[in-house]
Amino acid sequence: MNSSVEQRRPLLRAVNVHKRYGGREVLRGIDLQVTSGEVVCLLGPSGGGKSTFLRCINHLERVDEGVIWVDGLPVGYRLTNGKLHELHERDVAVQRRSVGMVFQRFNLFANRTALENVTEGPVSVLHMPKREAETLGRELLSSVGLLEWAGNYPAQLSGGQQQRVAIARALAMKPKLMLFDEPTSALDPELVGEVLRVMRNLAEGGMTMVIVTHEVGFARDVAQEVAFMFDGRIVEQGPPKDVLAHPEHQRTQQFLASVL
């Protein structure tokens, strides 16, 4: 296969994604492409479907219509003879290895130390030798500035520290794509900076990232692309310097006026 074609293929491609809860449609046809190394921020008011869409990308939510392709594979399905076959949970688990996720509420394993949280994936999922995983874990904790907290349990860490451990935990799986679901929304204001700094470093290191956030300033500085979601649709999308400075859609203008 031609390598230039390979490069042009997006790492993430969502096609006409719909999601319903009962009778309520929370995603009404999302189309989004993210190429390798790109950082995309999803902005918009609460209830607009941003988090739901993010959770669909690693199949924590199942889509009701449309397909999400990650690295050429349909998420949650296997494509054979033009048919999408639903995958068994253990095959979904294999797909999820290449997609890291960071949650609003950190969700660190409460009964594991910071280091054990980071090594859990490599050891129990990738069957990496424990010694090797610990070396990797210490490297990652050091990269988020928490090496000396390796032996602490989540309850002994601040929110900002927990979120940085959570990022290290996701990175330990060497993901191709990182998803962030409002990573700073549960943090005290003075702790937001340390988490955003880690994310900015990641972006500069070339990580492909999809970020649901309310931090418009961060989106402007770091993202190559921002997308505004309202009522289950992406209403406006483009480079932050255009969209944030000159929003065309009325809802985008209202939203930016209310948060800036």
């Binding site: 253990r90 996720m101 129990s124 935990r169 996701a170």
Partner: peptide, 23 residues
């Protein structure tokens, strides 16, 4: 056990069975 713990386990690629056992 908080539901978030289970989602975190799934997110690092654990199967439901492994999630039950390890988390």
């Amino acid at each position: 056990v908080d539901k978030g713990q289970i989602e975190a386990a799934y997110a690092i690629g654990m199967t439901p069975r492994k999630t039950l056992r390890r988390v």
